[in-house]
Amino acid sequence: MTYDETTLAQLTEDAAAIIARYPVKRSALLPMLHLVQSVDGFVSPDGIEFCAGQLDLTAAEVSAVATFYTQYKRRPNGEYQVGVCTNTLCAVMGGDRIWDELSEHVGVGHDETTEDGQITLERLECNAACDYAPVMMVNWEFFDNQTPESAKQVVDDLRAGKDVAPTRGPAKVCSFKQVSRVLAGFEDGRADEDQGAGTPTLAGLEAAKEQGWKGAAK
């Protein structure tokens, strides 16, 4: 392993905190792979060795798991993972067009990263926001009701180093490494940041109010 002493000490401390959450330590593997990505920006050979060592697994066993899940990246990832949903509903509502224009605009295809290391593009499967179609995700934050123009603007702003807020979520999109640390189960203090619940989320509530809220005794 090539981690310097400080990095290794921090990783080891974090790994111990993750392992302590589970009755059986192998359960720590998925969050630990997110942790490795928070340091290296992908699941590196060093990271695989580290996880294997901590969990008494072989590197092959860790790799077998890492390669099963799409969020684990096998090459250095861009600072921002930009996914356009092209599953049926989003695709039909315009996701296919957004993907075509965005991919051409950025100059890379699916699972490819721009030369400046900023943007990794991905054709995304359903991300459970269908009532906000067409949807784009940036580092796993919601960008709802997108158009080709809005999607390109988001990416341009990110590449220009501006803070970009998702439509639902925190005040700004964090980096891939920062978000990976949250996914390893470490809070980043942004849970109370909010852009509003979103009109579709509240659509039924509004309709119920118009009905006079007769249904549910509250």
Binding site: Y22, V24, S27, L30, F68, Y69, Q71, Y72, E125, A184
Partner: peptide, 25 residues
């Protein structure tokens, strides 16, 4: 314990979810 998965639809199938939670494919 709140556990984050890593991108695999199949983990919504309950026994696949359990394997995943145990740190496996």
């Amino acid at each position: 314990t709140v556990h984050a998965g890593a991108g695999a639809y199949i983990c919504g199938e309950e026994t696949a979810l359990l394997d995943s939670l145990e740190g496996r494919r």
